[in-house]
Amino acid sequence: MLRVGLTGGIGCGKSRVAGLFASLGAPVLDADTLNRELQTPGHDLYAAIVDRFGPGILDARGHLDRGALRSRIFADPAERQALEALVHPAVEAAIEQRLAALPETTPYAVIVVPLLFEAGWEARFDHVVVVHCEPGEQIARVTQRDGRSSAEVEAILEVQMNPDERRRRGDSEILNTEQTSDAELANQVAERDTALRELATTIRSRVENRPPNS
């Protein structure tokens, strides 16, 4: 089974593209969704974060106050690194567990990782698809979607990889600009799905036909 990483900057439309892959029958795992799940009370990651950052990051219900935690890590790179040191191994273990439960005949699975390159995770994937749009479009989409200010979104973009560098490091690209119609986006995903299924078949055939002890 091919492991396909799906990444892109904030507001580029990763969730929309992931949904199109899912509609074509590809299993989709979302690192952010798993992260949120693991950060709820009762999970080891939740306990580790509270132990490291203290009860000041909890809301009145005892859940993580994501706004408070976000303020901490954006204000201090060392704090961000400390959080990542807790989160990344936990999320990676959860992804591995979910992948292991998929049928062996699955051609490929898509794992959505927003900060894939920033986290140094590219070696964990057989193929990385980058969803791209222009920075101005990212700011406009996120301010409208999340109600954040332009300054807040720009601060997030500052800690994310340069879009051109992300595109250079990816194996393939899906454009999701303002000029991209719904049909064009679906066609791009369908073409990538076909290519990934063909690649999975080729690799599986090579493995099955490999001489013993080679």
Score class of each variant (00 low, 15 high):
residue 202 T to F: 03
residue 194 T to W: 12
residue 195 A to P: 00
residue 57 I to T: 06
residue 145 R to F: 14
residue 213 N to P: 07
residue 125 F to K: 13
residue 164 D to S: 09
residue 21 F to R: 00
residue 38 L to Q: 01
residue 86 L to D: 14
residue 110 V to C: 13
residue 159 V to M: 07
residue 169 R to H: 10
residue 181 S to H: 03
residue 155 A to G: 07
residue 102 L to R: 04
residue 165 E to T: 12
residue 38 L to T: 03
residue 156 I to V: 14
residue 14 K to D: 02
residue 21 F to N: 00
residue 60 A to T: 12
residue 71 S to K: 14
residue 212 P to A: 13
residue 181 S to R: 02
residue 120 G to C: 06
residue 46 Y to T: 05
residue 168 R to T: 12
residue 33 T to S: 10
residue 172 S to E: 10
residue 95 I to G: 03
residue 94 A to T: 10
residue 97 Q to W: 15
residue 148 R to W: 08
residue 93 A to W: 11
residue 82 A to W: 06
residue 84 E to K: 04
residue 158 E to I: 07
residue 178 E to Q: 07
residue 153 V to K: 00
residue 3 R to N: 04
residue 93 A to K: 14
residue 211 P to V: 00
residue 165 E to K: 08
residue 45 L to W: 04
residue 202 T to D: 10
residue 160 Q to N: 04
residue 78 A to N: 14
residue 208 E to Q: 08
residue 142 V to L: 12
residue 75 A to R: 15
residue 87 V to C: 12
residue 165 E to L: 07
residue 214 S to H: 09
residue 181 S to T: 14
residue 197 R to Y: 01
residue 137 E to Q: 14
residue 148 R to Q: 10
residue 18 A to T: 01
residue 170 G to M: 02
residue 112 V to Q: 02
residue 92 E to A: 15
residue 93 A to L: 03
residue 167 R to P: 06
residue 135 P to S: 03
residue 74 F to N: 10
residue 67 G to V: 09
residue 40 T to M: 10
residue 22 A to D: 05
residue 118 E to R: 11
residue 53 F to Y: 13
residue 63 H to G: 10
residue 210 R to E: 10
residue 122 E to D: 14
residue 102 L to N: 07
residue 183 A to G: 05
residue 177 T to G: 08
residue 13 G to Q: 00
residue 17 V to D: 00
residue 183 A to Y: 00
residue 59 D to C: 13
residue 91 V to L: 05
residue 165 E to F: 00
residue 146 D to P: 01
residue 108 Y to Q: 15
residue 86 L to S: 11
residue 136 G to V: 12
residue 186 A to D: 05
residue 36 R to Q: 09
residue 157 L to I: 09
residue 128 V to L: 02
residue 7 T to V: 02
residue 136 G to A: 15
residue 12 C to M: 09
residue 58 L to E: 01
residue 208 E to N: 09
residue 160 Q to R: 01
residue 19 G to F: 04
residue 133 C to R: 00
